[in-house]
């Protein structure tokens, strides 16, 4: 449905993304990359805020720039830094955005009510947003993105500012929304997408590293992840993924091509893959 074809984005001489090609079908896509890797640039191009320097983005075979309004009509977007009118109530703000989304008053009113209920903001629907907490604002953001029941829902760092309870609620919400639409969710918090994303997109060195399911990604490290006590000296070369506390003391989580003596591999998770792929190079 949505395809990104050989897209490159440059800001002057700075190369932000190079030759990205991707295909999106209904389901949740997690865009995982360290800060500065070009996640937001890619999303801004998908939302028509930026135009590709080279290549094109197609919705059902037509360039989204040519589709214009038609494309934005099926788009829901929650930006990374969600701005709002401080003196508006959520209801007023959503009503305004509903108008911008081409919805008439009669359609918008019940939809707003429904969404406010969905994001649990019904009781503060008529309170000015300047007194809202970060989590409440983020929920207003999610509600506005869902206003037009989009076929393509793009969420940039949607869990920023949410507490653990809200984060879980949010994951469930996304999961329930993903039935008949494409949801692209950018984050650098692995746990946000581990359980809900059908596919994970990794960007590295401003290029597409891979686009695979979490299982496939974890399989990349199958049999190579180990946990060893921190005081144990290892003779073979290894890549440190992290350390954590166990009952027996501090343990190191490592990736090693040959198993250290006396240790059997543990099941790799998405965080291991993330740390393995990006090592300590960051997004560059």
């Amino acid at each position: 449905m949505l395809s990104v074809e050989h897209v490159t984005k440059k800001y002057g001489s700075y190369l932000a993304l190079e030759n990205i090609t991707l295909e999106f079908e209904n389901g949740v896509y997690g865009l995982l990359a360290p800060n500065g890797a070009g996640k937001t640039t890619l999303l801004n191009m998908l939302t028509t805020l930026l135009l590709p320097t080279e290549g094109e983005i197609l919705w059902e075979g037509t360039d989204i720039a040519a589709l214009g309004k038609q494309y934005r009509n099926i788009l829901g977007y929650l930006p990374q830094h969600f701005g709002y009118y401080r003196d508006n109530t959520p209801k007023q703000f959503l009503r305004y955005l509903a108008a911008l989304k081409g919805m008439d008053g009669k359609t918008a009113a019940p939809r707003i009510q429904e969404l406010l209920k969905l994001v649990a903001l019904l009781d503060v629907a008529d309170k000015k947003m300047k007194k809202f907490s970060g989590g409440m604002l983020q929920r207003v953001g999610i509600a506005q993105a869902m206003l037009n029941d989009p076929k393509l829902l793009i969420l940039d760092e949607p869990t920023a500012g949410l507490d653990p309870r809200e984060r879980v609620r949010f994951r469930n919400l996304i999961h329930s929304l993903s039935q008949n639409r494409i949801v692209i969710l950018s984050t650098h918090i692995v746990s946000d997408i581990e359980t809900i994303a059908g596919k994970i997109i990794l960007l590295k060195n401003h290029e597409l590293y891979c686009c695979k399911s979490p299982g496939e990604l974890c399989n990349m490290l199958a049999g190579r992840v180990f946990e060893v006590p921190a005081d144990r000296k290892l003779s073979k070369p290894y890549q440190l993924l992290g350390e954590h506390q166990t009952e027996a003391g501090t343990a190191l989580r490592i990736v090693c091509e040959t198993p250290p003596d006396g240790f059997s591999p543990v099941a790799p998770n998405l965080e291991d893959v993330f740390l393995y792929v990006y090592g300590d190079e960051g997004g560059k």
Partner: peptide, 8 residues
């Protein structure tokens, strides 16, 4: 971002 990515 929110406004320029909307239908309008």
């Amino acid at each position: 971002a929110v406004i320029y990515a909307s239908y309008t």
